[in-house]
Computed example of a mutant assay.
Amino acid sequence: METVSVDFFENNAPLVVPYLSQDFTEALKERIRNQSRLSMVRADADASFSGRITGYTINPTAVQGNDRAGLNRLTITVSVKYTNTATPSLNFEESFSRFKDFSTNAGPIQSQEQQLIKDINAMLTEDIFNRAFANW
Rank of each mutant, 00 (worst) to 15 (best):
V78A: 01
R31Y: 13
G65P: 15
S95I: 02
G70Q: 06
S50M: 12
Q115R: 12
F133T: 05
R68V: 11
W136M: 12
N105A: 15
K81I: 15
A132D: 02
F49P: 02
I76R: 05
M123P: 04
T87F: 07
T75R: 03
S79N: 15
E2G: 11
A43N: 15
G65H: 10
E94W: 02
T87K: 13
D7V: 08
I117G: 04
L124E: 07
I53R: 06
R131G: 10
A106R: 08
E94N: 02
E10K: 14
I58K: 00
Y56N: 13
K81N: 13
D44P: 12
M123Y: 15
P14E: 07
F133P: 02
M40S: 10
L116S: 00
T83C: 01
F96H: 11
F96N: 09
P18A: 03
A45G: 09
F96R: 13
N135S: 12
G55H: 10
S5N: 03
P88I: 03
R98C: 04
T87R: 15
F129V: 09
M123Q: 13
Y56K: 07
Q110E: 15
Y19I: 12
I58G: 02
F92C: 11
Y56D: 04
N11C: 10
D101P: 04
L74H: 02
G107H: 05
V63D: 07
N121A: 05
T87P: 06
E126M: 06
P18D: 00
V16K: 10
T25S: 03
F9A: 01
E126C: 07
F99H: 07
G70C: 04
P108Y: 01
T125W: 10
N59P: 08
V16A: 03
M123F: 07
F24N: 05
E93A: 14
R33A: 09
W136H: 12
E30N: 13
R42L: 14
G65V: 14
S5A: 10
I32V: 15
L15W: 11
T54G: 05
S103Y: 06
A45H: 07
D23I: 03
